[in-house]
């Protein structure tokens, strides 16, 4: 695990880089970028990816990978929409019940991802790839290939609502989107779990040296299972937010999301080799990617070019990280 100081330096570096980028871009975008409305929008757009990437961070620090999270957004969304439509009640009760159903589906999928990895030592790339296919297929089957519209309006607040509107209006802000608050809570809670708890320490130890962790008496199987369950749970939360945003559970919203989340994790400084990284970095990774997408949209860059640029940014980020690791932290 990196020491708090290097972690701080790394985070500061990212923030500084972002700040410079922001100013330059604002000039190019003729001031349409640095507006409270646009920035709030960016935050709302990255909620799904940031939440997925939080779970993904845990998995990747154990030197694993979770390719199923994109499909799990879809599967949990479809299941939650179907469930919500079948319930006779609404309000907060419906939100809680629906979320619990989604979490049950997402966490179970995570459990299924983990068992072959833990019990048979199969590569997580394969088990989660299989889950990715199965979950997507199942989502399509359950939804008969079409989005399932939600009848209740209980989720509108999560999807499109703002908090502190009156308070922030004088500052020119539209308020804080409720979905962004969900993301903030998840990022903060799991950042604490990863850095402050025994479980978090074990996650790093397993990624750093699994055999040493085992011989130190750590229940490696349990910890590994937990990280995939957390990842599945994060996918379910992202699924709920997606469903609320679009008022439907849709079987094809998550295509490519798993790779976006991995990109956020890697750009955020977490090593795919395991043992090194953090949630705060991941959040900034997701933010950087979100800003980049937003900027390119504002500058009217066509979507193909956007993909090229995104790929290049990911490559540069990991190269810079590797060079920094090699020459600066000895």
């Amino acid at each position: 695990m990196t020491s708090p100081r290097t972690l701080l330096l790394r985070t500061l570096g990212l923030v500084l880089g972002l700040a410079v980028l922001v100013v330059v871009i604002n000039v190019f975008a003729q001031g349409s970028f640095l507006t409270p409305g646009n920035l709030t929008n960016v935050l709302r757009q990255i909620t799904y990816n940031a939440i997925l990437a939080v779970g993904q961070t845990f998995v990747i620090i154990t030197a694993g990978i979770d390719l199923s999270v994109g499909s799990l957004i879809e599967l949990t969304g479809v299941v939650m929409a179907t469930f919500a439509n079948a319930m006779p009640f609404g309000g907060v009760g419906l939100i809680v019940a629906t979320l619990l159903v989604g979490l049950a589906v997402g966490c179970s999928a995570g459990l299924i991802n983990a068992l072959p990895v833990v019990k048979l030592n199969l590569p997580p790339f394969i088990t989660t790839l299989a889950m990715m296919l199965m979950a997507r297929g199942l989502a399509f089957k359950l939804a008969h290939g079409r989005p399932i519209p939600i009848n209740s309006n209980a989720f509108d607040g999560i999807g499109t609502g703002f908090l502190f509107e009156g308070l922030l209006k004088p500052l020119g802000l539209p308020g804080i989107p409720i979905a962004v608050l969900w993301m903030a809570v998840i990022v903060v809670v799991f950042a604490i779990v990863l850095t402050r708890t025994r479980f978090g320490r074990y996650v790093f130890a397993i990624g750093g040296n699994e055999e040493a962790a085992r011989l130190a008496g750590i229940n490696v199987g349990l910890v590994k299972t937990m990280v995939y369950v957390i990842s599945g749970g994060c996918a379910a939360v992202a699924g709920l937010l997606y469903m609320a945003r679009f008022s439907s559970g849709s079987p094809n919203t998550g295509i490519g999301s798993e790779l976006q989340s991995i990109a956020a994790v890697v750009v955020g400084g977490t090593s795919l080799m395991g043992g090194r990284g953090g949630i705060v970095g991941t959040f900034f990774g997701a933010l950087l990617i979100g800003l980049l997408n937003n900027v390119m949209n504002l500058l009217n860059i066509e979507s193909y070019t956007q993909e090229i640029a995104l790929g290049a940014v990911i490559l540069i980020a990991v190269i810079v990280d590797e060079l920094r690791k090699r020459y600066l932290t000895l």
């Binding site: 990196t2 025994r198 040296n209 040493a212």
Partner: peptide, 21 residues
Amino acid sequence: KAQGLVLGMSVRENTTLAHLD
């Protein structure tokens, strides 16, 4: 290196690893 230590971790973290409870 292979079995005793998590090389990327600090002296502090390695010291308590087996008795973190």
